[in-house]
Computed example of a mutant assay.
Amino acid sequence: MKSDKYGERRGAAFGLAGVIMGFGISSLKKYGLIVTLQEALIDRNSAKRREGALLAFECLCEKLEKLFESYVIKMLPLLLVLFSDQAGAVREAAECAARAMMSQLSAYGVKLVLPFLLKVIIY
């Protein structure tokens, strides 16, 4: 999340997803990764940090698939806010993360996400 180069941030996101796959889904909570990602997503001072967190979120969605679904639901509100970010790179990363997230949701996950999305759209 701190590197100046997009490629390094992207590569680190893939590496993180691989490590989590190796250690197991429980390592997300054990090492406080979700809290760190959430803090980075709301950091208004660093677009690189927000983009890096979105890249990690995207890679985790793609690699962990259905196992990551419960965390997706927790992070959805933060993801939606980043669609209107001032930085174009962050908006693009939010779009890619949302695409990865939606492609991996199960029918149950869609049932949980859809009411929230409809509520946001209507209000």
Rank of each mutant, 00 (worst) to 15 (best):
A93R: 01
Y123M: 11
A94C: 15
A40V: 01
V120K: 13
I42K: 13
F83H: 15
I122C: 13
E62A: 09
Q86V: 14
G18Q: 08
L54E: 01
A89D: 12
F57N: 01
F83L: 13
L76G: 05
S26D: 11
I34P: 00
R91D: 11
A53V: 02
L60S: 01
Q86A: 14
A56P: 01
A100R: 00
I73H: 11
E8L: 12
E65Q: 15
K66N: 12
G18D: 08
A97S: 12
V120Q: 13
A107V: 11
V81S: 07
K30L: 12
L41H: 02
A40R: 01
L82V: 03
K74C: 10
L54F: 01
R49S: 02
M21H: 05
A13Y: 01
F14C: 03
C59N: 03
A89F: 07
V113T: 11
V113L: 07
F14H: 05
Y108V: 14
A98W: 00
L28V: 02
R91L: 11
V19Q: 13
K74W: 13
E92W: 12
S84H: 15
G88K: 12
L67K: 07
K2R: 09
T36V: 08
L67F: 09
L105V: 11
E62S: 05
A100G: 02
S27C: 12
L118Q: 12
F57T: 00
S26C: 08
A93E: 09
E65M: 08
E58V: 04
Y108P: 04
S70R: 15
K74L: 15
G32T: 05
I42H: 04
R91Q: 14
V110Q: 13
G7P: 03
A17T: 03
V110H: 12
E39Q: 09
A94F: 01
E95N: 14
K5P: 00
A12C: 07
I122S: 13
R9P: 02
L114A: 15
I122H: 10
F116V: 07
M1N: 08
G18W: 06
L79F: 07
L78R: 02
S70Y: 04
G15H: 11
P77C: 12
L105Q: 05
A13V: 03
Q104V: 15
M102K: 07
K119G: 05
V81H: 08
Y71P: 00
G11D: 07
A17G: 04
K48G: 06
A93I: 00
E95R: 10
L55N: 00
G109R: 05
L82Y: 03
S103M: 08
A107F: 08
A94E: 02
G22C: 06
